[in-house]
Design a protein around this nucleic acid. Sequence first.
DNA 1: AAGGATAATTTTGTATACGATCAATTTTCT
DNA 2: AGAAAATTGATCGTATACAAAATTATCCTT
Lengths: 231, 231
Amino acid sequence: MATDTSSTGTPDRVSRIRNGLLMAILEHRLLPGTKLGEDEIGQVYDASRTLVRAALQQLAHEGIVDIEKNRGAFVASPSPREARETFEARCLIEGAIVERAVKARSETWRVRLDDQLTAEADAEARGDHRAAIRLSGEYHLLVAEMADHELYYSLLRELVARTSLTILLYRRHRVHFCGVDHHRLITDAIVSGDAVRAKALMIDHLKEIEAELDLSETEESNASLADILQG
Amino acid sequence: MATDTSSTGTPDRVSRIRNGLLMAILEHRLLPGTKLGEDEIGQVYDASRTLVRAALQQLAHEGIVDIEKNRGAFVASPSPREARETFEARCLIEGAIVERAVKARSETWRVRLDDQLTAEADAEARGDHRAAIRLSGEYHLLVAEMADHELYYSLLRELVARTSLTILLYRRHRVHFCGVDHHRLITDAIVSGDAVRAKALMIDHLKEIEAELDLSETEESNASLADILQG
DNA sequence: AAGGATAATTTTGTATACGATCAATTTTCT
DNA sequence: AGAAAATTGATCGTATACAAAATTATCCTT
């Protein structure tokens, strides 16, 4: 098994499990509703249930995993309502983030943003959807990093993850433009120091993604996982 | 009513521990830096370390408890930077919350707000500081409940808890007005339907609380817990 | 007596064991 | 045969046991 200790400053065994699951979910390799058995995960990461449970509880707190008492953990299936709330929160927080990002702009950041954009375009060109989805989220997190606001960053991390699940569940058209063009426009506004334009573009970008989804209320109770996977 | 997000009430043993600790922290009976030994807590709640650990990990994720590897859990001591970020986030989120709360105003809500205010005033009049502190935070959460936005509500819950710790650590004057007067003004604006005034009052309220604190950077490293408790 | 190294104690990290709960399958009765 | 009931199998919730790390206490040296 791979013993990579370099990824983060966290040689924590539970973090390794958490990050592995998170990556799989963000890349849509684990679909909403998928059962996350403790023993099964434990075997994959060669860890006991104790550690797996800790990782699952963390992900549950981030809203990426649902834990049902005496039934186990599942990849979360955000309800339409949760989806709308997530987008509203993202508009609010990312609006504040881009304003701060503009203030922090510099040549170094311009380069990092540019690298990110080329990586995104690359993945899309290669047709690597999984990487494209992940990189699309990472762009927003890069802007959040610019904002130099730890709290906003960690909040956005959770929101981005939930957005990824939401898009997977509710998108109308099979193919979803991950928004590299939008990202480029936003980047231009940021590096040129136009805060109000950057903020407007960011919010429009988010609203456009939301508009591509079908968030009509089906039932009061969340759509069953079986419905989504087997239907 | 119950503030839990789970559909079924949570007679969960770990939630009981979590809530007990949270209440103690919010009422400033457990001070920042206090060691939270697993065995000790387990004896208090008659539970094994497994459950205590789960509760502590939850609180850690909410930023109310710091867990240091191989050293244990402590009541968190937010740094000045974290404190500033918390207030900035509260201004942003509570600004959005009051706007939504105004839209949801009704006679029922007016009564609940009024009851809350009298409870707050009562506690202050009685000189029951601990209750006053807790009730002050609960007012903000009540407004958030009005907003009917689960995500904003849960976010604010964490922010309010961290604010409580922050005030305890950094307030200049020994006695701190918990802001019942402010709360009354905000309530008036909400029930009268004046959204922009309500929002402005809420943000001013938060900024005033922050202004009463001394958030000057002392050192890069967080102020030691021993400093705060024994100094 | 002060300082430091080492032993003893406490506390955390992790694995495992056992009872409880839920899903599924088989059995039984109408 | 079909439905209700009982049994089986798997999975989760919780407690406990053992290993590793840190803290505290002790003793020896200077």
